[in-house]
Nucleic acid binder design. Sequence first.
DNA 1: TATGAATGAGTATTCATTCAT
DNA 2: CATGAATGAATACTCATTCAT
Lengths: 225, 225, 225, 225
Amino acid sequence: MPDEEQRPPERARRLPRAVRERQILDAAVQVFSRHGYHSASMDEISEVAGVSKPMIYTYLGSKEDLFGKSIQREATRLLEAIQAGVQPDLPPDMQLWHGLRSFYRFVAEYRESWTVLHRQALTVGGAFAAEITAMRTRAIELVAALVVSAGTRKGLAQQAEFSGAGLSAALVGAAESLADWALDHPEISDGVLASWLMNLVWLGFNDLVEGEVWKPRPGETASEG
Amino acid sequence: MPDEEQRPPERARRLPRAVRERQILDAAVQVFSRHGYHSASMDEISEVAGVSKPMIYTYLGSKEDLFGKSIQREATRLLEAIQAGVQPDLPPDMQLWHGLRSFYRFVAEYRESWTVLHRQALTVGGAFAAEITAMRTRAIELVAALVVSAGTRKGLAQQAEFSGAGLSAALVGAAESLADWALDHPEISDGVLASWLMNLVWLGFNDLVEGEVWKPRPGETASEG
Amino acid sequence: MPDEEQRPPERARRLPRAVRERQILDAAVQVFSRHGYHSASMDEISEVAGVSKPMIYTYLGSKEDLFGKSIQREATRLLEAIQAGVQPDLPPDMQLWHGLRSFYRFVAEYRESWTVLHRQALTVGGAFAAEITAMRTRAIELVAALVVSAGTRKGLAQQAEFSGAGLSAALVGAAESLADWALDHPEISDGVLASWLMNLVWLGFNDLVEGEVWKPRPGETASEG
Amino acid sequence: MPDEEQRPPERARRLPRAVRERQILDAAVQVFSRHGYHSASMDEISEVAGVSKPMIYTYLGSKEDLFGKSIQREATRLLEAIQAGVQPDLPPDMQLWHGLRSFYRFVAEYRESWTVLHRQALTVGGAFAAEITAMRTRAIELVAALVVSAGTRKGLAQQAEFSGAGLSAALVGAAESLADWALDHPEISDGVLASWLMNLVWLGFNDLVEGEVWKPRPGETASEG
DNA sequence: TATGAATGAGTATTCATTCAT
DNA sequence: CATGAATGAATACTCATTCAT
């Protein structure tokens, strides 16, 4: 029962395929993020997209296909957003900070994308979990590589007490978890979130307790939130 | 098609209600952890439990109820396991370390419990997310309170750069993420996992890079894995 | 929308599984014979059976399964009916005649069974066609064996002009075709139908034209239609 | 997903209507014979024809129309082929034999046509069955008339034991059934097939058993396969 | 107490058919 | 003339849930 009063974007107008596909993917991300994979219905997606169900199947395949393509698009967006924020000629800590800022900015701006990626992608067994894990791995390598390698140069990884992969997993988990927390605290800017995390992983409780604080150095960032 | 010749545990015997409920919850946790909330079917649960479906409804209510009660039982188990591990008369860092060890031991031993709590509970909208969040909050307060409060004594929280809640969320996220990672690396003992995390959150990269390493002090732990 | 005024057999009463299965198969044969495999809808079958769709799936499986089981049951019925009619101690021609009579009696009495077997079973590709072909083959061997072997004894099959299998196929086709024709001419008794066919395949046009006629010999048949 | 690089026959070229219609009917017969009426999709037909779906609807109407026209065209072809083979100045048995040969030649050469006519046309309720029956009737009258009338001259039909229509139905059924059988035995020539059938219906088992055999008389046939 | 029997309600998917260009 | 774009309508199948026994 599509409401007559609110017409979704350009219903039933003959639009080129590419446009329709975008519309559908937008709707899919929205609906999947709201209800999760299983509870989302193709009916609702088609309604939100302003497109009939057959079009979805024609253009993007089955529900599973659609979910996969949604995931993929959003994952790409997220990684690109992060990469765009990193400035390779800065010192490692500043790079990490900038990467984190981009990440939190993305999460704030594209809540739905983040929800789909972080929460919903895990609910579907196998294939998607793998895809998400792959993306997470890329994220780990992208964001944390610099830190780990920085440490490695000084012999960090050589110590028996340490595992690069395990540490990276922990770091990414911390960043994600803080992102989730931040969704309920929109008043905290991405710069501050990034700084918090830097204090945690860069300085650690010990230094914090001693009164040391990590701060982004001025001149190295355009707009602090 | 369950063959008649292989009888599931105690099928159709008159058993006291409490026993039945435990059987059912055990089965529910198992099945939910395998397939997730939506894909799990009451049929499979009843089959695994060796109990007819009407019994499940009589004893534990709807599927949603059943899931909620599963979550609750496992959450309690987890918290109790952690609490049992903490020794209040040790210094804060050792307390944290012991708590983390208990946590990783629990995850390793009760994979299914952990899966249900960590992965599956999020897939169901609203009610359960809240319950899980509550448990997480309790976990944060339980495990991290000492650290944060330790810092607070020295004025940590007063600094604008810092948020107890946010930091705790990050810490818990790190611990969870490392737990997930550890599921695929069973050769890493819980003591080592806990130490890694201590190095991350207690010392931070900066100190690590400088060559400092956090270690549990001997005599304060019974069996290091 | 099941009509309230005409209640199908015992709707919603708790009946033993075997009874339900029979009801469902009866309905399936009816509906499949009317509309063919593809056009038949599970909804209609369930309605006719006086049973909800889930029961059908629980008891008899998918639509394809259901069709297969319908076919099988009717094929068995048909073959048994024919076998029951044959009297092995009679001369070959009388045996054939009796077999044919049984066949035509069955077709007249169980129109729907015959329709499903003869018409509808071919519409579904592969698996069922094979099954039907198998049954046809059994029929050929059952009914025509005596004739062919009778001929063989005198060297019939040795002649290059002849193929047992091909001839049998033709004979069965003739019998089936006449059965179809008879459906529209219910006034012709099964005895007469069988006699016609005997005249065709036993005597052939040549002898008929010469005035010879094949007739069942009296005393060898109970009730001539 | 038809690739752009491999163009189906003459796609999108302006062609006269008659040509298009033939292309479409050819494709339709092909697809209908492969999948049957219901499983055949207009999409596949349009693809095979190299013509867009709207053209099919414009030129030949609905799916049902299309099927009907396919049937009609093939039926006409078949009848014409048979008629072309009959030579009216020969004796009845030779006429019948020649007609049968033409029939088997056609079936061998145009498998798809035959499949559509014999198998698929029956799967669609009502309208088409009638059309096919009509054609069958014409076939009966065409091929069998001579035989029956030959017999009639000598009083055959007068005998109570006999029905021209029923016998014809049986004869046609035998011929068809043998045609089906022959599809799986392409090594048997049309001449031999026709001879087999002649032996069955002309001489009958009785004479065959006695050693009599019907043979086409030399000089009356051009090329025996 | 315990369960086999039964179903209402919902969902993904497909296909013949038709506009707008 | 010719078609890519679009959909209404139908259908097989599943699952949580509840009686009647």
